[in-house]
Design a protein around this nucleic acid. Structure first.
Length: 873
RNA sequence: GCGGGUGUGGUGAAAUUGGUAAACACUGGGGACUUAAAAUCCCCCGGCUACGGCCUUGCCGGUUCGAGUCCGGUCACCCGCACCA
């Protein structure tokens, strides 16, 4: 009997409404069931949901539905990372208020997300630009300030000339702004900072416990935090050569073992000693100025020659008062790492060697390979940086560098210079404090007042929120808050004097550093309900792009620790499991007029050759490389188009099939069509056979056919469970295809009324129910429809995950491949419980084995139980 | 430069601890049904073959009864960091 095609346009909205009305996906904070928090990184409301979002949210939804079917109390919320620059750019371009633009986009994207049928708890939705949210963020800022985790200082900052704002170090990629792509400039500004460096060691150490994070991400964070063990040394300045009042030069080094290879000192252009020396030396002053101007762009760094300027100042070697070394100002020494000064050991560092060769400084080899000859070992063009043995280093000679390191450290720690130890061991980190001030309007205002009498005054909590004014203009570049006529004028809460508000807003990465905690009780007056937060957190499975490996994921780890100190949560690590999914990529098409969108192109394939044509003009267009979807290459696929033609289930199914989730997936029309056909096929098979199951009751699988069906179904059930547990969606889908292939002809027979075997029919019904259960997380609408056709009362979304039957997943007999000298020659089917001796005997009786042996005994027979047999001749 | 990853059919890929390489799917080809098309269903699809087999997981070598998987070397591509002392 033919049935109507499955129509997602009717079925999908219908089931979404049913789920919605029953509030199935709203999490209850008081539910005693074990909790499971699954979260996808919340989207920036840029305007449209694209197919990359579909993949991201489909994965999270499968996990959420799968865990819900296992009886977990699942929290799966959604919100909007809604502050940020694009809203201001849109405001400038279209003369629309950033808030209005943002809210319009949210409306649109929420509607799109809802058509995907995601099992989200919409009752907890918020946007970070809601006053209700940033109010509590200001509250957190004040708490952090009180706990000494926020401070203000003047510093050199990364200035993005296009976005006209400051960027954190993490937001400078290859010397350019992460959003604008413009080369970053250096400026001196007074900025607010979060003291993330207080946690350097802890953030690094705790990475070891994040065993459900990708190694790659942990490694990236480790490198970013950049711990190094070294020695902080004081070198004595030769008094006659030094500026007045300066007696020592402090240096940080990770290679104190090479101290006898030192041939010069180098200091940053901003180093106090350089500044002093430049005061009486115009040429030096000019050199320092040139260093500062050089900038930090990649191009500048790569082409810039290592240059130095001899200050004329000399230092004494710590182990030889008669050994004097020159002090240079060098353009490659950074003021903000270590002490802004180094000692140069040319033989052990390529950069120092290049510098020494350029300025004719001595090169003394101090480490040589263990099989080297100290008398002849020389360094000329290539520094030696490997492990080895110390030479030319007096009391260190013959030691390994590690031992020499400790020896030098011990000697200098006990030696005195001007009454202080001459050196101390020090651990340094590359991580800098997080500068959060942004000179933008569309962000969370920093709740601070600048009073002429009292200085920096925090806004009292009772005066929060500091709301953004609505009446702003974007006519001129820069921060509209800065030139607002009234907003910034305020009375000092301490002395009542006329004062001014801080007009900087917070970096939007602050917004996303605690939203996951707010979701646990978004109605609370305080930033969190600490009890609820501690119950739900950590997020059990967090899903998002690897591009946040450092920025967002490091900030959130810091924030959670800071919130703990302020009493808002009781844990340190926010994300227990992290999964970084791959991107959705697509071919690019370029016609004579420029890039074309996939929807504007028709691709034809003949005899293995693919050609693309402009749909409108019919002209052939060039097929370009497969790339990340971007507006510039126009290779974006909008979710609406796909959802409209194939439905949410097919789109979700395709996004999860084929490619493993951590890898990039190529979006193809053919791929979605395939998924769509599969959806239709499942509907047709189940829908047409359903009436045949009407009065079929559960009964034992007495026939061979029944048992075979049950075995296949239960094996699949087990395998899919294991696949989903490790987020291997693509292999889970392969198992589903296999099961459908197996069930196809029995279902067709049942539909045709030809199935006479009652036991087999019962087993088939059971198999269909299993199939529906395992497919439900991926294609929930389709399965609800099938489930109804099967006459099941309970919604599939409320049906528990079936338990596989242990007896059905283990066969009584096994088929082993039989190898002769490692090449497969036969199969042997034997009882599962046959012992090794029996297996060996059966193998040796096989005709192929007999003829290969030709009467001689085998050299060896390797029997791997339940796997393989190898006969070695 | 430093650190990490990946390389398997025409394509996406599978092979969870060393144990039948290519499951599952896409594309393509052939057939059935149809007046025809769509849809659907069936078959074929790594290479060579004297039809016995032989070769095949970037390349070269090693360990092993047995290597896509482990080890050494090498090439290519991708990602992250990068004047960090």
């Amino acid at each position: 009997m033919a049935i109507e095609r499955y129509n997602p346009r009717v079925a999908e909205p219908y089931w979404q409404k049913v789920w919605d009305e029953r509030k199935l996906f709203e999490a209850d904070n008081d539910d005693p069931a074990p909790k499971y928090y699954v979260l996808e990184m919340f989207p920036y409301p840029s305007g449209r949901i694209h197919i990359g979002h579909v993949r991201n949210y489909a994965m999270g939804d499968v996990i959420a539905r799968y865990k819900r079917a296992h009886g977990y109390n699942v929290l799966h919320p959604m919100g909007w990372d809604a502050f940020g620059m694009p809203a201001e750019n849109a405001a400038i371009a279209n003369n629309v208020h950033p808030g209005e633009w943002t809210h319009r986009n949210i409306e649109m994207m929420r509607a799109q997300l809802k058509t995907m049928g995601l099992s989200l708890d919409w009752s907890r939705e918020f946007a970070t630009c809601d006053v209700g949210y940033y109010h509590r963020q200001q509250y957190l800022f004040l708490d952090f300030l009180e706990k000494g985790l926020v401070y203000r200082k003047q510093s050199k900052v990364n200035w993005d000339p296009v976005d006209q704002t400051v960027l954190a170090n993490e937001q400078v990629i290859d010397g350019c702004g992460w959003r604008s792509g413009a080369p970053v400039e250096q400026r001196e500004l007074t900025q607010w900072f979060f003291k993330i460096t207080d946690f350097s060691e802890e953030l690094l150490d705790a990475l070891g416990e994040l065993d459900q994070w990708p190694d790659k991400v942990r490694l990236m964070q480790k490198n970013w935090i950049g711990r190094s063990e070294g020695l902080h040394m004081h070198w004595q300045l030769v008094a006659e050569t030094a500026p007045p009042g300066q007696s020592t030069l402090e240096v940080y080094t990770t290679r104190p073992d090479t101290v006898f290879g030192a041939s010069f000192m180098a200091i940053a252009a901003d180093h106090p000693l350089a500044v002093k020396a430049a005061g009486s030396n115009p040429d030096l002053a000019a050199f320092c100025e040139a260093c500062r101007r050089m900038g930090t762009s990649v191009a500048a760094l790569e082409t810039a020659e290592k240059e130095g300027f001899d200050t004329g100042i000399k230092v004494r070697h710590p182990f030889d008062a008669d050994w004097l070394l020159p002090v240079y100002v060098a353009n490659f020494v950074l003021m903000d790492y270590g002490t802004g000064a180094i000692f140069g050991c040319p033989s052990g560092d390529q950069r120092d060697l290049d510098f020494a060769n350029k300025y004719g400084l001595p090169v003394i080899p101090v480490v040589m390979p263990e099989d080297g000859d100290a008398a002849t070992f020389q360094i000329t063009e290539q520094a030696y940086t490997d492990d080895g043995i110390m030479i030319n280093s007096r009391f260190l000679d013959g030691m390994k560098p590690k031992e020499a390191f400790d020896t030098v450290a011990e000697r200098l720690e006990t030696a005195q210079l001007d009454g202080n130890p001459q050196a101390k061991r020090e651990t340094n980190y590359r991580l800098r404090d997080w500068g959060i001030s942004r000179q933008r309007y569309w962000g969370c205002p920093i709740p601070i007042i600048h009073c002429p009498n009292c200085g920096v005054v925090p806004v009292p909590k009772s005066d929060l929120p500091v709301e953004l004014p609505h009446d702003v203009d974007f006519e001129k570049p820069g921060n509209p808050l800065d030139r607002h006529p009234t907003w910034r004028n305020v009375i000092c809460p301490q002395c009542g004097a006329e004062a001014e508000r801080e007009t900087d807003t917070m970096d939007t990465f602050v917004d996303s550093s605690w939203y996951f905690a707010r979701f646990t009780a978004p109605w609370e007056d305080a930033p969190t309900d600490p009890e609820a937060a501690s119950r739900w957190l950590p997020v059990d499975q967090y899903i998002g792009g690897v591009e946040h490996a450092i920025l967002h994921l490091l900030y959130s780890r810091f924030f959670t620790r800071a919130m703990r100190i302020a009493g808002h949560v009781d844990l340190k690590e926010p994300f227990k499991g992290l999964f970084t999914q791959g991107m959705v990529v697509h071919e690019t098409y370029k016609g004579t007029e420029g890039w074309l969108m996939p929807s504007e192109v028709r691709v034809e394939e003949h005899a293995g050759k693919r050609r693309a044509f402009n749909v409108e003009s019919g002209d052939e267009v060039a097929i370009g490389s497969i790339e990340k979807m971007s507006k510039s290459k126009r290779n974006v696929v909008d979710s609406d188009e796909i959802l409209d033609s194939c439905g949410a289930d097919a789109a979700r199914f395709f996004m999860l099939s084929d490619s493993p989730p951590e890898r990039d997936v190529i979006w193809t029309e053919a791929g979605v069509d395939g998924a769509h056909r599969f959806v239709q096929r499942v509907w047709r098979l189940i829908g047409e056979a359903a009436p045949a199951f009407k009065d079929v009751e559960a009964r034992p699988a007495t026939s061979g056919k029944a048992e075979a069906l049950s075995r296949t179904a239960h094996k699949t059930l087990k395998a899919v469970g294991e696949d989903l547990d490790r987020l291997s969606f693509n292999t889970a889908i392969a198992r589903m295809h296999e099961l459908v292939n197996t069930l196809q002809s029995p279902l067709q027979e049942a539909a045709a009324g030809q199935a006479k075997d009652e036991a087999a029919l019962s087993a088939l019904k059971d198999a269909v129910n299993i199939l529906m259960s395992i497919m439900a997380p991926m294609t929930p609408h389709l399965i609800e429809e099938c489930n109804r056709a099967m006459g099941n009362e309970q919604l599939m979304a409320e049906t528990p995950w079936p338990v596989f039957d242990q007896d059905l997943v283990v066969d009584d007999s096994v088929t082993l491949p039989v190898q002769i000298n490692g090449k497969k020659r036969a199969d042997l089917t034997i009882p599962r419980d046959a012992d090794q001796v029996a297996v060996e005997r059966a193998v040796l009786e096989l005709a192929v084995v007999q003829s290969a042996l030709a009467g001689k005994p085998p050299r060896r027979v390797v029997v791997v139980p339940l796997r393989i047999v190898n006969v070695v001749i």
